[in-house]
Amino acid sequence: MNVNQIINMVMRIFLRKGVNWGINKGTKMVSRSGKPAATATPAQHSQTTVARETAKRARKAAAVTRRIGR
């Protein structure tokens, strides 16, 4: 294994962590619509709950897909 391969491997790890962090952060921002929980209406609360559950299901589906691909 040469130095270039090692550097690429380490860079891929950090890039993957960064992209995952950004996706999770964006999903959370969208799911709460950028408003504090105290000022949200009951309709917004239910919408937020649905969005979080959808995001959770999407993450689980992606994990299952990765497992199947192995």
Rank of each mutant, 00 (worst) to 15 (best):
G34W: 06
I68L: 15
V30T: 03
K17D: 13
V19T: 14
A63N: 11
R66P: 00
S31A: 15
S31W: 00
N4P: 00
N20V: 07
G18D: 09
T41P: 02
I23Q: 10
R66H: 09
K28C: 01
N2W: 01
T49Y: 01
A55T: 03
A61W: 04
L15T: 15
A37N: 07
I7F: 03
V50L: 06
G26E: 08
A58D: 03
M9N: 11
A61Y: 06
G22I: 07
V64D: 10
N20F: 12
N8Q: 09
K25Y: 14
A63K: 15
N2Y: 02
A58W: 01
M11G: 03
M29P: 02
P36V: 04
N4L: 09
N2V: 00
V30C: 01
V10H: 03
T39W: 04
V10T: 05
R57M: 06
N4S: 12
A43C: 04
R12F: 03
R59M: 06
G26T: 09
T48H: 15
M9A: 12
I23C: 05
R70S: 12
V50A: 13
R67Y: 13
A37V: 07
A43Y: 07
W21N: 13
H45D: 11
S33M: 13
T54D: 06
N4R: 11
N20I: 08
M9C: 08
M1G: 15
R59K: 13
T65D: 14
T54P: 00
I7D: 00
S33E: 10
A62M: 06
S46N: 10
A43T: 07
A43G: 14
R59Y: 04
K35W: 06
G34S: 08
R59V: 03
T48S: 15
V19S: 11
G34I: 06
V3A: 14
K60M: 09
I6S: 05
I7P: 00
A43I: 02
G69R: 15
V30D: 00
N8D: 12
V50Y: 01
T54K: 10
M11N: 10
I68E: 14
A37K: 12
S46W: 08
S33D: 08
G22A: 13
T27L: 13
N8G: 04
M1C: 08
R66N: 09
S33W: 05
R57C: 01
I13A: 02
N8E: 09
R52L: 10
M11H: 05
V3D: 07
G69H: 12
G26Y: 14
I13F: 05
H45K: 07
I68V: 15
I13P: 00
M29E: 09
H45R: 07
T49Q: 13
A51N: 11
S33K: 07
P36Y: 07
S31F: 00
K28T: 01
S31G: 02
G69F: 11
M29N: 10
M29C: 06
V10F: 06
A63V: 06
V3E: 11
N24L: 08
R12A: 12
W21H: 15
R67D: 15
T48L: 07
G34E: 04
T48W: 15
